[in-house]
Design a protein around this nucleic acid. Structure first.
Lengths: 164, 164
DNA sequence: TCCAGATGTTTTAAGTCTAAAATGTTTAGG
DNA sequence: CCTAAACATTTTAGACTTAAAACATCTGGA
């Protein structure tokens, strides 16, 4: 079958409709779920999603994080973190102090209040997630984890390539 | 094996750690890709992602759409669409008129300029997506499509349940 | 016909977000 | 020691986003 190489050459070089559809579906799923979580957080705890996300990062770091760390982990801009932190310090959920060893650095931590409130929210949040993903079997979840890991790797490589 | 029912009863009712991890991974993937697309759109065409998304909706609707349609399709609030449209009308990309049959309704369309510019951007955008998802095989793409469809359905049911 | 409720859009207030410039601090090389 | 580059954060200007209230219009039944 000598057509093989020709088949490839003839194949429209620009037919990436399937990948495009995949991207749109991925985006739809995330937007849908994110909106639902946002809505429940507001309704139930009167808290915004970015604040919840920031507290979630800090809950995993008992010794605190620098603003840069937070920025990288949350994949948002530095300036964004500054404002977010400011409001959470204001409301008493976060403690912020300048590093002893490097005066450029701000270290933030959950306060006792912040941790207590976050834990309460997180427990309920987990049940919402279970509800939202309820139709997926264990195998579905495993398979999605695997494919999304591959997707993430692929995207990270593309980002890297562009930055050269 | 009479333990079966007991096993289920004993199983921690709150262990949804896997679903939570899945959600975080889904969110990470989307955020990563969205950021990359946003960055390329700005760099290459000096346009924002929401504007591109809105034009993409209108490109698929030659007869125009109402603001409500757009709002539902893009899954954003009504007020958001109002502002977005206003800026795109201002820049000459969109045409907006009051419906002949219902004076509440605003119908928007791409202008000739808007369509031409969108088509140029869309062509390049598709190659970016191909690049970003480049490591996935055809089978991976099919499988992801299937699992995300299932996820979307599951999430929609959860949203529905809450709204009762 | 009339009007109560539904529907479509805009406005408002507050928060989130980005890119880029500005500020302050540290570090390394000469 | 000095200083240029690197680094961490904040500021700025503008855009995006939401929820809720306000406004405008339509519709279906009494």
């Amino acid at each position: 079958m000598t057509l093989d190489s020709e088949t490839k050459a003839v194949e429209l070089p620009e037919d990436h409709a399937e990948e495009l559809r995949l991207w749109l579906r991925l985006l739809t799923c995330t937007t849908l779920i994110e909106g639902e979580i946002r809505s429940r957080l507001r309704e139930r705890f009167d808290v915004t999603l970015p604040r919840f996300d920031l507290m979630a990062q800090l809950d995993k770091a008992p010794d605190g994080m620098t603003l840069s760390d937070v920025s990288k982990r949350m994949m948002v801009s530095n300036g964004n973190v500054t404002g977010l932190v400011e409001r959470l310090v204001e409301s008493g959920h976060l403690d912020r102090r300048t590093s002893d060893t490097d005066r450029r650095v701000q270290v933030i931590r959950l306060t006792k209040l912040g941790r207590a409130e976050f834990r309460k929210m997180a427990a309920e949040h987990e049940t919402w997630i279970a509800d939202i993903f309820g139709d997926l079997t264990e195998k579905d979840v495993r398979e999605l984890m695997r494919l999304l890991a591959k997707t993430k790797g692929s995207a990270q490589k593309a980002v890297q390539r562009r930055q050269d």
